[in-house]
Design a protein around this nucleic acid. Structure first.
Lengths: 140, 140
DNA sequence: GCTACACCCCGTAGTGGCTACGGACTCAAG
DNA sequence: CTTGAGTCCGTAGCCACTACGGGGTGTAGC
């Protein structure tokens, strides 16, 4: 059985070394065996689990959601429905974030374009933010 | 000159009361005058400034960016170019966030649809996350 | 054996942008 | 005079890390 150290695990999974210890501390990944010198020793299974965590984080799942996913991923569970439900909820979050950001982007785009076109006294971007009066009546 | 208390300011701008005090602490908004009883007293100018901050936060500008925007919004400055530059950079951030999220959404959508279609042994969502082997070799 | 250097150990503190808590006051209405 | 709402302040908590400091360990070259 080949065992690797935390640094190797970190570089293989792309998870920051200190983040690995953090995940262990919060119980997201199990505490591994230790060598005689106290070093953590990980195995292939740990690499797989941490890669799973990392991909889920990349997809924007938060730690608690990942805890649930990991539990549902235990073998022999009829979990697909639950996983699907979680994924759909998460997808909803993502989609509303997307439309929020799209509204922001178009607002900003409009203001920036007005900037290019107009030689007005006030800046259209600041105008959108309601800045026209900022500083006009300084605090006494 | 009409003066309002912090609670009124908070409800008028939609900024949480404790957040107003936080903004004062970090110097994003100026410390207002105090009444004899120690209560903060705000004026129309403060409402405008805080509304500006709030709109900028809603647009996703971070505190340091807002500090810059506020400085650029001081009257009499030839600031439009700088504001535009900042806004364009911020727009770039937003757009890359949008495309990140869109990639995630389509990944998730694909997996979820496979879930609906297939009666496979493994869950497509978990498969995408590489979970097929999770728990298969439990730690000793 | 000695030195240099990378790697690992641990606990703790800092990040951003708030939000909550607790105990003390002030104020207006009934 | 009591009640309830509003305000004061400092501090601690939130999330998901990331960094720091001071030590121990492993390995390679000389």
């Amino acid at each position: 059985m080949v065992a690797i150290t935390i640094g190797k695990l970190a570089s293989e999974t792309g998870v920051h070394l200190e983040t690995v210890r953090y995940y262990e501390r919060i119980g997201l990944i199990p505490a591994p065996r230790r060598a005689r010198n106290g070093y953590r020793h990980y195995r292939a299974e740990d690499v797989r689990r941490l890669s799973f965590v990392r991909r889920a984080r990349d997809l924007g799942f938060d730690i608690e959601e990942i805890r649930t996913l990991l539990a549902l991923a235990e073998p022999g569970l009829p979990s697909c429905d639950e996983v699907r439900t979680l994924a759909i909820a998460h997808l909803g979050d993502i989609q509303s974030k997307i439309s929020d950001l799209q509204r922001l982007a178009s607002l900003l785009t409009t203001s920036i374009e007005q900037c290019r076109e107009s030689e007005a006294l006030t800046c259209p971007v600041l105008d959108m933010l309601g800045a026209s009066a900022i500083g006009s009546t300084p605090n006494p």
